[in-house]
Nucleic acid binder design. Sequence first.
DNA 1: ACAGTTTCCCGTAAATGC
DNA 2: TGCATTTACGGGAAACTG
Lengths: 441, 441
Amino acid sequence: QPLITKLIENALVVEKQPFMQNLTHRPLILKIGVRFTVTVRFLANLPDFKFLLKVKPGFSRDVEESNTTNGSRLFEFTRNDSKVLDVDTPGGGLMAEFAHMSLKEKKSKSKGANESYLGVTEDLHLIRFETVLYHNGQTYNINARSLPVVIITSSSQVPSAWASIMWWNMHCTSKSMNLSLFLEPPPLPWQHLSQLLSWQFLSAAQRGLDEDQLSMLKEKLVDGHNDVVHWNRFSKDESAWIWIDAILTLIKKHLADLWRDGHIMGFVSRQRAKLLLQGKPNGTFLIRFSESVKGGAITFSWVDSSTEETHVHAVEPYTKQELSLLSLPHVITRYSLTMRGKTTNPLIYLYPDIPRDLVFEKYCKESDPLATKMKIKGYIKRILTVSSNDPTPPPSPPTEMPEMDFELTEILDDFLGIFESDGGFSPCQETPYLDALMSQD
Amino acid sequence: QPLITKLIENALVVEKQPFMQNLTHRPLILKIGVRFTVTVRFLANLPDFKFLLKVKPGFSRDVEESNTTNGSRLFEFTRNDSKVLDVDTPGGGLMAEFAHMSLKEKKSKSKGANESYLGVTEDLHLIRFETVLYHNGQTYNINARSLPVVIITSSSQVPSAWASIMWWNMHCTSKSMNLSLFLEPPPLPWQHLSQLLSWQFLSAAQRGLDEDQLSMLKEKLVDGHNDVVHWNRFSKDESAWIWIDAILTLIKKHLADLWRDGHIMGFVSRQRAKLLLQGKPNGTFLIRFSESVKGGAITFSWVDSSTEETHVHAVEPYTKQELSLLSLPHVITRYSLTMRGKTTNPLIYLYPDIPRDLVFEKYCKESDPLATKMKIKGYIKRILTVSSNDPTPPPSPPTEMPEMDFELTEILDDFLGIFESDGGFSPCQETPYLDALMSQD
DNA sequence: ACAGTTTCCCGTAAATGC
DNA sequence: TGCATTTACGGGAAACTG
């Protein structure tokens, strides 16, 4: 088989579209009934084939193998018309856009064998595009496949789906394309997972996780001895990832600047916060995420040593509901506590020792959700504030990001390239002659 | 034609289901693609006909007349299977339930003539049920029709649709069933509209509108001389009804108890509020709805005569967003204003002269949206409060509801019966032998 | 009964049509 | 171009289903 054949056979490649703003529908997670667009490109510069290559979309798990399938669900496109490559690309190739595509489940008749041990968000699928090229009397079947896609029915499944995609990416590549990864999901070294997590925060709000923060998460995730995290621990039991993801969302929506500037210690246990604060000057406080509120919430703890006995207090955590009306800097700046008849703001120094207003005042101007509404004529502006009635030394400031090991860096770069890059992502073939862009609209 | 024939011909009646909790989808407003249920009852006690009467649903404006239709849209049921009357009712009649019905638009081919002068929410439709009864060698066509239904595509059209239904009910009855009312919508005497409006508040939160409140609305709605309100003024220009409806919604969700107990003056112009408050003791305040915030908002105005010059101030109005986190009694009780270095709560007497906490404290316990969340262990409760930095005599308390004229009472009773009653509503035939219950699920 | 999954549908935003 | 209407779909909750 001549080289050209091999190249052409590998010429169909699936790629995603420019990076999407809307992160709630992350790429490679497709929701049934929601439109998405796939653009297929033939990368080889063979303009003679214009109008001649008819590309047909489909799933890698299609009818043929439906019965050998390990209980995976089956899907089809609501419109699965073939398209002809008919648009010239800047690079000299050809392309076609599959717009307004959406998925529906294809109910299989043999229900019995359809029982899977996988959860919906562990059931991986590939979207495939096929075409046939006739050249020099020979017939070439060309096809491209996407990276694994998780197909969900409700947006509440997005965080779980994302967990699967992350886990898959840490274990597989397009070369070792294991769609059955979750039948026996291998554990992940903490060393790897920790950096993956850090990247999530880096890409959400321009700052990763420092060693202290990671060590708190490690305690939640690592199973004893060999510094390894098991899939169940990560994504099922306790749903640790769900919690982390909710916090990521909270940060993206309401805390991006504070997080970016490192003012949120965040991942500190209550215990540790207490230890850090006790012995610090009265009114020293830190900001941490609630571990009990599953949907993501943030609170602040401060030390009160105004009486004989030193105490560490914390307010009830703020959720997205509250933060959509009151920005956290606003709350911190104006928090007032009434205790023994005296009303004061107990928050004086942001841990370790920075005066409160020096840190938070600057955010109040720009980012107060209410500030924008305050231009209605003739009314007195109102300022929502938080107060409480009646309700105890710390280590060093957040440390630098840990250095990462070299090999892992590559994996992660690759991974990030897939999701965050602007143009195409790393194609799943070595020889990208033809590829496709995909995105949820 | 014997009497029995006439009776049987009139025996099919459409009726709605028990009053629905979900008021956002009021009865007789159907949204495309949203399920609803119609139960058809044969009221005549003729159990012999069990399984013999096949009832077929349809629209009064069906294909036959599609071309003579004045540009009205056409609809069909997504499932329009006939049903057989097969269930015995307590009264000895027969019934069948059309469950999981939903509508879709039937696009007419002749687009040209399809242009209507009516807005979507002015386009009235009837749902019709037909059956044929063979009795004593004679054939009887029996059919029932619903009261007019407004068919919408988005819930944002609900308020307009409701306006149409109210207007129709004030002008038409099942006897004078004018589906083209809005081609030339007749005006409505203020005397009638005012009481209709009052009833909306009565049914939303157990208190109607007093004369002062009505006179403020009258000013917005009545067109000069002859005390009459025009349809355009009510539902189109300025969208007065949309504003009122938004306030109704605000009351239902967040202010029901305050409104019920008469503590919300509400419909007072800024001007009038000023007049009322000037001359009252310092700190007298009243609660009014914002006229400028279209989506419904509430504010309070108070008189400040602590300086030489008397001023009436008002806070920026609260919308449903704020009220879902802070109840109004809570806000009023804790409002604090910082002026010339002093921080106080400027709200002292609820107009005319009731001490603030006497009125509002009792609502704080029961209804504070945050109160329920405050049981998370180990955190200091937080209290969201409102404060402001830097920011003139009154008449009598809200008067009693005006008496209504007798005839109107009947019309309105009938109207309320239709929408608010618990069982069926007034059937659209004089001889209710067979009827149907209808509701949006 | 229950958990995982899907469906339902409001409410807002964006797209479409006229 | 602006307004009227429709479509899209996130997000929370109910309904389903084994």
